[in-house]
Design a protein around this nucleic acid. Structure first.
Lengths: 150, 150
DNA sequence: TTAGATGCAAACGGTTTGCAGGGAA
DNA sequence: TTCCCTGCAAACCGTTTGCATCTAA
């Protein structure tokens, strides 16, 4: 449940991606797997530009276009999640296969914290009932600041 | 509590804006009040371009720059709320002075529904306690589709 | 062999900025 | 009269697109 990602779990991730690509008749290119590996090798959130630079530093150059393209695939198969935190402030993160969570963001620094509160599931099901819809995903983000010292 | 906005309540809104401008030594220009009036004359969500066109149709031409500028002020004094629903899909809405609410968005059509569920307040206070922070605002949006007919 | 993928650079579109002119205080 | 505000157009910047080349299948 709280198991940390391991080499084993990356095998799992790679299999999910492989299966997804095969099922959708997409090619299994080295770029795609290298991007996946880079994403899962690091914790926390990132944006495209950061990922681009990180990969370049690791001597693996991919074009931004390919990054955007691949993110689309990774989003589609659920391995990555996208958060639009504000205008021109989109970030991705690898899906935590072990724990669902939402975000708190410091307004000043932009630092991102994660939490999980099961009450959100109650709200979700009440929304589904209220509007007679299926909720496919949701976004819950709190913004604020450290409590001032008294 | 569920009172609909009336001419009286727009007086109230105008006073809030006036006070805000005076307190911050901002000028009370006709553009600013015309924009405010236009926003509060219509229900629902809108983006800058829509507002720009709407005002032009009403024979009141303001530049986009002034719209962006004024939205900043209206956000700051709490009369308007901004929602970033996705990349290049920011919308504003006049703050409902009578009722707090969150959103459900149809993934296909982009149609926006509103709901309020008090459980969100419990999550908020638990987040504040957990991280020892003050939450200034939050965003909760569900995405999904109509339930398929069986 | 060939259709899908990549890399590059140009295009795109919402937002921001620089600057000259205008008007609230 | 002052200097904040407006309008305009260019700049900005993250993202998308078009196209030639490459390569997985």
């Amino acid at each position: 449940m709280n198991k940390k990602p391991t080499e084993d779990s990356f095998d799992h991730v790679r299999k999910i991606f492989t299966d997804y690509l095969e099922q959708h008749a997409h090619r299994k290119t080295p770029e795609r797997f290298t991007i996946l590996k880079e994403i899962f090798a690091t914790d926390g959130h990132f944006d495209i530009e950061t990922l681009y630079i990180r990969m370049k530093n690791h001597k693996y150059r991919v074009s931004r276009a390919t990054l955007y393209n691949t993110m689309e695939l990774l989003l589609d198969c659920g391995l990555v999640t996208k958060h639009q935190f504000g205008t021109n402030f989109a970030q991705f993160e690898k899906s935590n296969l072990f724990k669902q969570h939402d975000h708190f963001i410091f307004s000043d620094s932009g630092e991102v914290l994660e939490f999980y509160n099961p009450l959100i599931e109650q709200i979700r099901s009440q929304v589904e009932e209220l509007f007679d819809v299926d909720v496919t995903h949701y976004s819950l983000t709190f913004y604020g600041n450290s409590k001032p010292k008294k």
